[in-house]
Simulated scan of single mutants.
Amino acid sequence: MSGLQLDSNGRLRHLITLEGLDRKHIEALLDRATELRDAFADSGGGPQLLSGRTIINLFFEASTRTRTSFELAARRLGATVLNFEISSSSTNKGETLEDTLSTLEAMQADAFVVRHRENGTPARLARHSRRAVILNAGDGNNAHPTQGLLDALTIRDRHADFSRLKVTLCGDIRHSRVARSDLHVLTALGAGEIRLSGPAALMPASDEFPNCHIVENFDDAVAGSDVVIMLRLQRERMAEALVNDEADYFRRYGLTTERLRRAAADALVMHPGPMNRGIEIAADVADGPQSVILDQVSNGIPVRMAAMASLLEA
């Protein structure tokens, strides 16, 4: 994937996945996100780095947070933003995604933000693109790179040295693109220990993340953790997870105040959203003093500004 994401000079050309992306590129994106966040906070406005640029959101899958965040990020940097209406597009008349991309690219679109239910779609479009850049806003269970970056930024705001951290992810990791991007970025940044917890049927294959520890008992997984990242459980996965119902899942894998006490005293509580309160996480934990869930949401904008600005050489 590095040959697709990076140009001949080693510069980031597209943002498709964090897998294989080295620490230098990741830290450069996080540093730029911090700079842009500070610039906009200090002045109430910020540099119009994308003035004259056109960004098109190609969302073939429903989204609220990610689409809104990308749109706000682009507009704050001065770009023209078009939200492509899939329901009325020519893709419903048999036009291929590649032809749709070429048509919009011929109208001088500079970047496409792509979300699709099928793994590999953003990479497929990146291979077809003639000059426009492609940003993956989530594909299947494969990758969600800007989510991984905003989660890393949220942690880095409080812990500069990842090598000293114990990080626990809990939930449906096997089917989660967020989990994969989080694990790729945590590995690249040198996280000291990464634990994965949840029903055995929802854990990744043992060889997919060989440096992570799979701990099925969530109480054990939380113990001593500096960061606890909870993942959404889709209700249709419950039978696969061999849980009786939502209450059973919450009893075994829900993050409660009592369980959180097993973690480090200043442990961060994270969730990429949308949350199922009372299933993955108790309401008092989600809204509690250790929760940085809303900080994750806020950090999505500067991270996406940084990604678009970096890719477009602004």
Rank of each mutant, 00 (worst) to 15 (best):
L6P: 09
D7M: 10
G10V: 09
L12Q: 10
I16C: 03
T17Y: 05
T17S: 15
R23N: 13
I26E: 06
L29R: 03
L36R: 02
L36Y: 03
F40V: 10
D42N: 15
G46R: 12
Q48C: 03
L49Y: 07
L49P: 08
T54K: 13
I56C: 15
N57C: 11
E61I: 06
T66M: 07
R67V: 03
T68W: 00
T68A: 14
F70C: 01
G78C: 09
F84M: 02
F84C: 05
S88G: 14
S89G: 14
S90N: 14
S90W: 07
N92E: 13
N92K: 15
E105V: 13
A106W: 00
V113P: 11
H116P: 04
R117C: 08
E118Y: 13
T121Q: 15
P122A: 06
L125H: 09
A126Y: 11
A126R: 07
G140R: 04
N142D: 14
L150N: 04
A152T: 10
L153F: 08
H159P: 07
K166P: 01
V167F: 02
D172W: 08
I173M: 06
R174M: 09
H175V: 06
H184Y: 14
T187C: 00
L189M: 14
L189C: 09
G190Y: 04
G190D: 08
G190W: 09
I194K: 11
S197R: 03
A200M: 02
P204Y: 10
A205Y: 03
C212E: 00
I214S: 14
F218T: 07
S225G: 02
M230D: 05
R235L: 15
V243C: 08
E246W: 07
E246I: 00
Y253A: 04
R259I: 12
A265I: 06
G273F: 08
N276E: 10
N276F: 08
I281H: 01
G288C: 11
V292Q: 11
I293M: 12
L311A: 11
E313G: 05
